[in-house]
C-alpha cells in the first residue's frame, strides 16, 4: 500500500513544480534531470537487473535523437514524430546487436557495446549526405517556454518508470536477476538466457531512444559528437545509475538529479570547471569504494553510519 502511494506523491509534486513559477534555468535543470532519469532507468534494466553492463547506450540515445532529426531534415516531418520512428528502428538495431554481442560475456560484452557506440558515432560523422556529418542537424523548437517540454519528459519518464517497474516485478524480472547472479545456473533452471538478455537489451534500448528523441526536440540541435558521445552519454548514463543505486527503483532518479546538478556546478567553477569529467572519474571511484550499491542501494549502511556518528557526538 505504502509502496503504491510513493510514486503518486512524487508524481504530484513533480507535476506541481512548474506552477511555482520557477525560472527557466531551474526548469532546464529539472528537464535534464528527468531526461537522465529515463535513460538511467533504461540502462538499469539491462545493466542493473540483468547484469549486462553496457558502455554503448549512446548508440540508442543517438539513434533516437537522429530519428527525430532525420525525419525533419529529409521528410519535413515534425521532429516530434521521432518518438514513433525511433521505437521500431532502435528495437530492430538492438535485436541485431543483441544477436551478436549477447553471445559474449563479461568484459567482452562491455567492449563490444563500447565499440558499437563508437562505430555509430563515426558512421554518423561520415555519412555527410544523409546526416550532414559533424555539421549536425538544427531544428526549430516548437516552444520557447520550458513548461511544455517539462510535462512531455515527465510523461515519458513516467512511462519508463511503469514499464521498468512492471518488468522487474514480473517473471521476467526474476529471470533477469537469475541471469545476473549466475548465467549457467539460470540456463540449467530452464531459462533461455539469450532470449531474456535480448528482451532486456531491446526494452532498455527503446526507452533510451525515447530520451534521445526528446533531446533533439528540446535542444533543437544535435551532432554526432554529442548524441553518440562516449563520455557525455554512455558513461554519464552509467554514472547516473551507479551514484543513485544499481538495481533499485529510485536510484536512477536520485542519481540523475545529483549528476545534472553536479555537472552544472563543477562546470561553473573557475579553472577546474573544464576538467569536470575528471571530477566525475574521481566521484565514480569514491562511489565504487564506499557505496558500491549507490545511494539508494546502500542507504541502510549510510543511515547506520550517520546515526552512529550522531549518537557519539
Amino acid at each position: 500500500m505504502k509502496n503504491n502511494l510513493v510514486p503518486l506523491v512524487v508524481l504530484a509534486v513533480l507535476a506541481g513544480l512548474p506552477l511555482l513559477g520557477l525560472n527557466s534555468y531551474v526548469m532546464h535543470i529539472l528537464i535534464l534531470s528527468i531526461m537522465w532519469t529515463l535513460a538511467g532507468m533504461a540502462w538499469n534494466l539491462l545493466g542493473g537487473y540483468c547484469g549486462q553492463v553496457s558502455f554503448g547506450h549512446a548508440a540508442f540515445f543517438g539513434m533516437g535523437a537522429y530519428s527525430a532529426g532525420l525525419i525533419h531534415l529529409h521528410l519535413g516531418l515534425s521532429p516530434w514524430w521521432g518518438f514513433l520512428v525511433s521505437l521500431p528502428l532502435v528495437a530492430l538495431v538492438a535485436l541485431a546487436m543483441g544477436s551478436v554481442v549477447l553471445r559474449l560475456r563479461g568484459p567482452y560484452f562491455v567492449l563490444a557495446t563500447l565499440a558499437i557506440g563508437e562505430v555509430l558515432r563515426i558512421t554518423c560523422e561520415n555519412l555527410t549526405d544523409f546526416t550532414k556529418g559533424t555539421l549536425g542537424i538544427m531544428i526549430t523548437r516548437t516552444w520557447v517556454e520550458k513548461t511544455q517540454y517539462y510535462y512531455i519528459i515527465l510523461g515519458l519518464a513516467l512511462l519508463g518508470f511503469m514499464v521498468c517497474r512492471a518488468i522487474v516485478h514480473s517473471r521476467w524480472g526474476y529471470y533477469f536477476v537469475a541471469i545476473r547472479e549466475d548465467q549457467d545456473a539460470a540456463e540449467s533452471m530452464g531459462i533461455d538466457t539469450t532470449r531474456y538478455k535480448t528482451i532486456a537489451l531491446t526494452v532498455s534500448a527503446m526507452l533510451t531512444g525515447l530520451a534521445g528523441a526528446f533531446y533533439t526536440n528540446y535542444m533543437g540541435y544535435i551532432d554526432p559528437g554529442v548524441v553518440f558521445s562516449l563520455g557525455e552519454i554512455s558513461i554519464l548514463i552509467i554514472m547516473v545509475v551507479m551514484v543513485g543505486g544499481v538495481a533499485t527503483q529510485w536510484g536512477p532518479a536520485l542519481g540523475a538529479g545529483i549528476m545534472v546538478i553536479l555537472a552544472e556546478y563543477i562546470r561553473s567553477l573557475p579553472l577546474i570547471g573544464v576538467a569536470y569529467q575528471t571530477m566525475f572519474g574521481v566521484l565514480l571511484i569514491v562511489i565504487i569504494i564506499y557505496l558500491p550499491n549507490g545511494l539508494v542501494g546502500d542507504w541502510p549502511v549510510l543511515r547506520r553510519k550517520l546515526l552512529r556518528r550522531g549518537a557519539t557526538a
Binding site: 536477476v177 537469475a178 547472479e181 549466475d182 549457467d184 545456473a185 539460470a186
Partner: peptide, 8 residues
C-alpha cells in the same frame, strides 16, 4: 560449488 543465486 552449488551455484545458487546469492542475492535471492
Amino acid at each position: 560449488a552449488r551455484r545458487l543465486f546469492p542475492e535471492m
